[in-house]
């Protein structure tokens, strides 16, 4: 008995020693986009994922919010010089800087989100936003009584047109005759943080008959969701789960799990399983999803849920192909 428990204890020690061996000591770091850490959307998602890693593993991470373009490269290089790895670069605007710094420090691991950088020590994570947009488009069309739905984009770039194109395809799949109003807030980065204009665009779409409005506009979208809620219509959130912003007035949210991407990158590095290369996260990889929680469960009927589940299964199996705007810069719908 004594012997048995001793052996068990020994085995336990050995196991934990092995686990400790398998875990690499890492010094992770994050360089945010110029939008800043607490933007209620994209950057904050990365922070939440990194913070979850810190809480679960006790491994501290460093982070930095660049104030101008020169500081992006400076921060990446400083983290690299201090031996931080993996270093997560958030957003497509860091690609040029990361390309330089990653080449200078070939022994360190870098991860970039929303952009592809092809270097042997860089992991690129991009998302299939069109797949998630398709699902919320499907749900939005089914929830619409007027058969008119709206889309408000942030800055007019191919990435946001990819959201719009997926959404249009989803709407048409549910109701081929539905009318879709599309607006972009602007053509500069200021379009990510203009909730007043976002609200006005949503209002004009609602005035034309839209009763569901989807936004892919970062901070601008807060205004879109509020305008929809104020008018008694439905909004659709993006990136993070925004259902709770106006409970009962947000149909659902298209989730882009940057938090999981950040968490997994750190975790893989710790487990020694980190790999460079491009990973494209879609519905299949759980990188993209739609939100169903206590705030919107009354809005989603069993038929809608069944339709969304079927569409998800069809996209994963390949039976339904959602056209990616960025593959040919076209949306033929």
């Amino acid at each position: 008995m004594r012997m048995g428990s001793f052996a068990a204890a020994l085995a336990g020690v050995a196991l934990s020693a092995m686990a400790a061996l398998a875990q690499q000591p890492i010094k992770p770091a994050v360089v945010y986009d110029k939008g800043g850490k607490f933007d209620k959307s994209f950057n904050e998602g990365v922070f939440i994922g990194a913070d979850r890693f810190r809480k679960e593993t006790g491994v501290e991470f460093r982070d930095f919010e660049p104030a101008n373009d020169a500081q992006i490269e400076q921060a990446l290089r400083r983290f690299a010089r201090d031996g931080h790895s993996p270093i997560i670069a958030v957003g497509f605007s860091q690609a040029t800087a990361l390309q330089k710094v990653a080449a200078e420090f070939p022994d360190l691991k870098f991860t970039i989100i929303d952009m592809v950088v092809e270097l042997p020590n860089v992991q690129s994570i991009v998302f299939k936003e069109h797949e998630g947009s398709y699902l919320v488009g499907l749900l939005g069309a089914m929830a619409s009584k007027t058969n008119k739905v709206g889309f408000v984009g942030g800055m007019d770039i191919p990435l946001i047109r990819r959201f719009a194109c997926g959404y249009v395809q989803g709407v048409k799949a549910a109701k081929p005759g539905a009318e879709i109003f599309q607006n972009m807030t602007g053509s500069t980065p200021a379009a990510w943080s203009d909730p007043v204009k976002g609200g006005e665009l949503a209002k004009s779409q609602i005035d034309r008959g839209a009763d569901v409005v989807y936004h892919a506009a970062g901070g601008t979208g807060i205004g879109v969701l509020r305008a929809a809620a104020d008018a008694g219509k439905l909004g659709i959130g993006v990136d993070s789960n925004q259902n709770g912003l106006h409970p009962g007035k947000v149909l659902t949210s298209m989730l882009k799990r940057v938090d999981i991407a950040a968490f997994n990158s750190f975790k893989a590095a710790r487990d020694g399983a980190w790999k460079p290369g491009t990973s494209v996260l879609g519905l299949k990889e759980d990188g993209i999803d739609w939100a169903l929680d206590e705030h919107n469960k009354a809005l989603i009927t069993p038929e809608m849920k069944a339709a969304a589940d079927k569409a998800r299964a069809d996209i994963i199996s390949g039976a339904v192909k959602v056209h990616d705007y960025m593959s040919d810069q076209k949306c033929t719908m």
């Binding site: 460093r62 919010e65 660049p66 104030a67 500081q71 400076q74 400083r78």
Partner: peptide, 13 residues
Amino acid sequence: GAELSFDKPTITR
């Protein structure tokens, strides 16, 4: 200032 906010997370940009 950039170095300061780098070393002292409480002092933001």
